[in-house]
């Protein structure tokens, strides 16, 4: 179930575009902000609000890596592994963070605390190696600093 606030926001988003489908991705992200992911039920509801078949919603949602169609952990850690970060030690950071969390990149801790994603360039190579924890960017990070950041997450 979408909250009234989310429904209101989706209505407002729709008003920004001459074509309702343009509001689809912003609407899915808005849902995700509240629920952490976009469930099949949420897709159906967003589809109803924007007048789109659920298949269209699902197809679009599945294309974008930052629309989660499965529930992630309470925190999402995006660790950059692209070239500038790799040249600055991202490999060691990834290994250390994986050890701290007991999972590999792409996985979620069994207690549902953290999802770790290895991602492409975050346009923050001046802070390489860097990572984004939820919405906060950190860097340059030593392996120990990175491990401490993820261990502190509740």
């Amino acid at each position: 179930m979408l909250s009234e606030a989310v429904k209101r926001d989706i209505e407002a988003l729709r008003g920004r575009y001459p074509v309702a489908q343009s509001a689809l991705i912003p609407a899915l992200l808005r849902v995700q902000e509240e629920q952490g992911w976009v469930s099949p039920e949420a897709m159906a509801e967003v589809g109803r609000l924007l007048g789109l078949p659920v298949e269209v919603v699902a197809e679009v949602a599945s294309f974008y890596t930052l629309i989660f169609t499965e529930p992630p952990g309470r925190h999402v850690v995006q660790l950059c592994t692209n070239v500038s970060c790799m040249l600055s030690g991202a490999e060691a950071v990834r290994e250390r963070v994986e050890r701290a969390l007991g999972i590999r990149a792409g996985q979620t801790t069994p207690d549902g605390r953290v999802t770790l994603l290895a991602v492409e360039c975050l346009a923050a190579c001046d802070q390489a190696p860097c990572m984004i924890v939820d919405q906060q960017r950190h860097g340059p990070l030593s392996p120990e600093e990175a491990a401490r950041l993820v261990e502190e997450l509740d």
Partner: peptide
């Protein structure tokens, strides 16, 4: 801004 190595637009 997604081209690896580019961060001037963000700046």
């Amino acid at each position: 801004e997604g081209e690896p190595g580019t961060f001037k637009d963000r700046t």
